[in-house]
Design a protein around this nucleic acid. Structure first.
Length: 153
DNA sequence: GCCAACGTTGGC
DNA sequence: GCCAACGTTGGC
């Protein structure tokens, strides 16, 4: 099993939004970065656990725990001319963007802020903290995942 | 709103 | 294949 961190802007789609979806599940559409796509297509598997991270907001940090709940499949928004994520170079025969479904797993007792994450030497190697890192999907080690889970429990 | 970092695009 | 220009991310 692998562990991940996925960023979302809470004013667009928050952890609460995920939890309030009818099936507590959301297709992770709109990713248009090849590295992030490759993680979803090649490495993320059903049951992998996810730190659901709120970015570009007043207090960035981990808001809750989610999980991968589908195999990889094409992002339908790439074929939708009306979508902001439409990609004219993608076809159903030859899709360019692949996603997985993300489901609610569990709440944290407390939000784990980026500021708090920075305080622990155990977490200093996280890619999240490395300079200039803009990837919206990042691998997390088992130790780091468990450490943050404990901080929030 | 600023700006550093960095991915993507497109001319050559 | 290089690289300048441009766009986006995301913390502050």
């Amino acid at each position: 099993m692998n562990y991940w961190l996925m960023k979302s802007e809470p004013n667009v789609f928050s952890f609460k939004d995920l939890k309030s979806r009818p099936k507590k599940t959301e297709p992770w559409n709109g990713v248009r970065n090849y590295q992030a796509r490759n993680f979803m297509r090649d490495e993320m598997r059903v049951g992998d656990l996810i730190l659901f991270y709120h970015s570009s907001c007043e207090i960035p940090g981990v808001a809750g725990i989610a999980k991968v709940s589908s195999a990889p499949y094409p992002d339908s928004t790439q074929f939708d001319k009306k979508s902001e994520y439409f990609d004219p170079k993608a076809t159903p025969e030859n899709p360019r963007w692949i996603l997985i479904d993300v489901s609610f797993e569990k709440d944290l007792r407390s939000f784990v802020s980026l500021e708090e994450i920075r305080n622990f030497p155990e977490l200093s190697k996280m890619r999240l903290l490395q300079k200039g890192n803009r990837l919206s999907i990042l691998p997390v080690s088992e130790e780091e995942f468990k450490f943050i889970l404990k901080l929030g429990s």
